[in-house]
């Protein structure tokens, strides 16, 4: 091993069902997140039924947002790779993959903020529109952006622990659970990208 041995207490499986309680907790949290984003998507679709989408403004955003989509999908790849490298006890690659995930997530947020600035100056605001499309657009993408921000912070904490040799072949739950959340955020974006920008 590149680092010290994993503490014995870290390998303890806390369970009442045969499945790690922490993992059940993460999945229950993700199930609640499904309902949360579904409510927002439902409200957005309902809005679209009565309010016209400003196609000219949104279409102009597609190139940058498409790039952002590739970036977020790429960050899911690096997150998954970090877990694979932790299982193989390849500490160096694991840390690089985690760092790349943080960098890609931050890049996504930077481009999204840049795009918000462009859209705002083109007239897509939360008030003053002849329709409420702007409000729903910023609400939906803004909440997703907040989730990405939370994921970046979470991954940063995981990376700092990795730097101290906190993960290995028998102790990688921290990466796995942060990864589940991160992939879920990616999954939500895949849906939002299609619904908001392409349809």
């Amino acid at each position: 091993m590149e680092h010290g041995t994993v503490p014995t207490h870290a390998l303890h499986l806390d369970t009442n069902t045969g499945i790690d309680n922490r993992k059940i907790g993460i999945w229950l949290f993700l199930a609640s997140e499904v309902m949360f984003f579904s409510a927002l998507i439902g409200a957005y679709l309902l809005t679209r039924a009565s309010a016209e989408k400003p196609h000219d403004i949104i279409s102009g955003a597609i190139p940058l947002i498409s790039l952002n989509t590739f970036i977020l999908i790429g960050s899911s790849l690096t997150m998954a790779l970090s877990l694979a490298f932790a299982r193989r006890d390849n500490q160096t690659r694991m840390k690089i993959a985690l760092l790349l995930t943080i960098v890609l997530g931050s890049t996504f947020l930077f481009f999204q903020a840049n795009e918000y600035n462009n859209l705002f100056h083109e007239g897509l605001t939360m008030s003053g529109n002849p329709h409420i499309f702007g409000s729903m657009f910023y609400l939906l993408t803004g909440f997703h952006g907040l989730h990405v921000l939370a994921g970046v912070v979470w991954n940063l904490v995981v990376w700092l622990k990795a730097l101290r040799g906190g993960f290995g072949p028998e102790n990688h739950a921290g990466i796995e659970y942060a990864g589940l959340y991160w992939h879920f955020v990616d999954l939500v974006w895949i849906i939002l990208f299609t619904i908001i920008y392409l349809l």
Partner: peptide
């Protein structure tokens, strides 16, 4: 399909 791929393989 894309969302399913993320859930099945990455998650």
């Amino acid at each position: 399909v894309k969302a399913g791929m993320v859930a099945l393989f990455f998650m």
